[in-house]
Design a protein around this nucleic acid. Structure first.
Length: 234
DNA sequence: GCGACAG
DNA sequence: ATCTTGTCGC
């Protein structure tokens, strides 16, 4: 079993607790993001969904990882982990709130995660180092981000049919893509995390959304982390 | 200076 | 993220 919670960014010891340090960590690790790889072929191997749920009253956080067969979208394996919230929600620093517990959940897997699909952004980030990129650099796994909101970026509404896309822009730079996963429904916002190209990231997301707006991987992980949270809290 | 701002 | 009733639709 591979251990993810121990490498360069341990979730306990050298994990930032203040914003100043957290931004410095992002600036230091962003140089390790790999963008010149195409990533695993869509529809092959495993695709793992990751999500986290909170109980702010008790500072409890529950993470879930669900491994799917990329071809059939059948569940191959699941794992959860419960931890303590050690970082507040600060736009741009989401990774420091979620990653420690996610790494613990990944440690509970026996299967190869394959491509990891995160709830949030990859390089579509003020410092080009969002949650998905951060998780990718710490684990070495290929990752991509799927967000439900455009964050600080702009975009023009893509055509109504499923599969249509429009650039997600930071000024004139394309940092991701607004991708229509369901006809006439608000698009999702996809960005490359680590070791995956933007176009392949979109191809993966389309394969993961045969029926709903959000990827099957994140829907599965969302349901799992919520039930995991209920088992330890309210 | 003030507001906006992934989850 | 989370707090929450009813309601429209397959």
């Amino acid at each position: 079993m591979t251990s993810y919670a121990t490498p360069s960014g341990r979730p306990t010891d050298d994990w930032p607790t203040d914003e100043r340090t957290a931004r410095a960590v992002q600036d230091a690790l962003r140089t390790r993001v790999v963008l010149d790889e195409t990533g695993p072929p869509p529809g092959t191997g495993h695709v793992t969904g990751v999500d986290v749920a909170y109980d702010d009253e008790r500072d409890v956080v529950a993470a879930a990882v669900v491994v799917l067969d990329a071809a059939t979208l059948d569940v191959v394996e699941e794992a959860t982990a419960v931890g303590t919230v050690t970082f507040p929600y600060v736009p741009g620093l989401l990774a420091f709130r979620e990653i420690p517990t996610v790494l613990s959940a990944l440690d509970g897997l026996r299967s190869d995660p394959g491509l990891v699909v995160c709830d949030g952004y990859g390089i579509a980030h003020p410092r080009r180092f969002g949650l998905a990129s951060h998780l990718g650099v710490l684990t070495g796994l290929p990752t991509l981000g799927v967000a439900k909101n455009p964050f600080v970026f702009s975009y023009e509404d893509p055509a109504a049919r499923r599969g249509s896309a429009a650039p997600l822009l930071d000024g004139t730079e394309e940092v991701g893509r607004a991708l229509r996963t369901r006809e006439g429904v608000k698009p999702v916002f996809v960005s490359a995390g680590h070791r995956v190209s933007l176009s392949n990231a979109c191809a993966h997301v389309l394969r993961l959304t045969p029926r709903y707006r959000l990827p099957e991987s994140t829907r599965r992980a969302d349901a799992l982390c919520r039930s995991a949270l209920r088992e330890v809290a309210g």
